[in-house]
Simulated assay, not measured.
Amino acid sequence: MMFWFAIPLTLALYFATRALYRRLPWPIINPVLIPTAVIIAILLAFNLPLDQYQHGTFPITALLEPAVVALALPLYQQARQIQARLKPILVCTLASVLISVCTTLVIGHAMGADPALLASLATKSITTPLAMSVSQSLGGIPAIAAAVVVVVGILGALIGYPLLKLMRVTDPEAQGLAMGACAHAIGTATSAEKGVTQGAFSSLAMVVCGVLTAAVAPLLFAIYHWLA
């Protein structure tokens, strides 16, 4: 029964938000943020079970994996540009991972956060499946990691390009790298709407940052525990 309610509602909110954004291209009109907020409000107002709604939207959820695989297309289209700039790409993504994890450890330690919470927050800038897996291996709580990833992605989609414009970062490759490194899949979706180059480099940064975080985060946590 929920299937016939969840699917139409989700799609209607998404396409309505996209149509509204075309008329009013404001960052706050985000096809992830607004539908999410409306659906949460509806579930709370009518006391509808979340698990049933999730089950009802399973056909849409199942499309996430092929959608991620489809990101390989813009990567292929930009293969020459990526190969020519491979070294700076690796340096930038590694710097992003180090900054993301280290700032979490330093700020969290200063605020007295426990190790489980730190492990849950440290993976905030990579895509959800990897974030949950890496945070769990570090002793974190996967549910918190997933929630933080979604929040970071939405914030990145909202303020990413306005902030880049404010800082006069106009190169599409740099824009894509920044969005993919900081706002993972949601930022990549926003980048793909900006242009093929932004989408390709954002996809690349999302993948590379995920791999690097899985490799570097355990080492940084070991150093943190040794120093602490």
Score class of each variant (00 low, 15 high):
Gly108Ala: 13
Leu155Phe: 14
Tyr161Ala: 03
Thr123Ser: 11
Ser133Cys: 00
Ile144Pro: 05
Thr104Asp: 05
Pro129Leu: 09
Thr104Asn: 09
Leu130Cys: 10
Leu130Pro: 13
Met111Phe: 12
Val148Thr: 13
Ile154Ser: 09
Val148Asp: 00
Val151His: 07
Ile126Asp: 04
Val169Asp: 01
Met167Arg: 03
Leu117Arg: 12
Cys102Pro: 03
Ser100Leu: 04
Ile154Val: 15
Thr127Ile: 04
Ala113Ser: 13
Thr93Pro: 04
Leu166Asp: 01
Val106Trp: 12
Gly156Phe: 02
His109Phe: 09
Leu94Asn: 07
His109Met: 04
Ser137Gly: 12
Val152Phe: 01
Ser125Leu: 08
Leu98His: 13
Ser96Arg: 02
Ile126Val: 15
Leu130Asp: 14
Ile141Asn: 11
Met167Lys: 00
Ala143Ser: 15
Val149Asn: 06
Ile107Tyr: 10
Val148Phe: 01
Ile99Ala: 15
Thr104Glu: 06
Leu163Phe: 06
Val169Trp: 00
Ala157Cys: 04
Ala145Gln: 06
Ala113Asp: 07
Val148Gly: 03
Met111Asp: 02
Ala113Pro: 06
Val134Ala: 10
Val97Ile: 11
Ile141His: 11
Arg168Ile: 07
Leu164Cys: 00
Met111Gln: 12
Ala95Leu: 15
Val149Thr: 12
Thr127Met: 09
Tyr161Cys: 00
Ile159Ala: 13
Ile126Met: 10
Ser96Pro: 02
Ala145Met: 02
Gly156Arg: 00
Gly139Arg: 07
Ser133Pro: 00
Leu164Glu: 01
Ala116Asn: 09
Lys124Met: 08
Lys124Ser: 07
Ile107Gln: 01
Leu155Thr: 11
Ile144Ser: 09
Leu163Arg: 00
Gly156Glu: 12
Ser120Trp: 04
Ile154Met: 11
Val134Ile: 15
Thr104Leu: 07
Ser133Lys: 05
Thr103Ile: 12
Ala122Pro: 05
Val101Ile: 13
Thr104Ala: 10
Ser137Met: 01
Leu130Gly: 12
Leu121His: 05
Ser100Trp: 00
Leu158Ala: 03
Met132Glu: 06
Gln136Asn: 13
Ser133Met: 11
Gly153Ser: 10
Ala147Thr: 15
Ile141Val: 14
Met132Asn: 03
Leu158Glu: 03
Ser100Glu: 00
Gly140Glu: 02
Val148Glu: 02
Gly160Asn: 01
Leu118Asn: 02
Leu121Phe: 05
Lys165Asn: 14
Ser135Phe: 13
Cys102Ile: 07
Ser96Tyr: 02
Val149Gln: 03
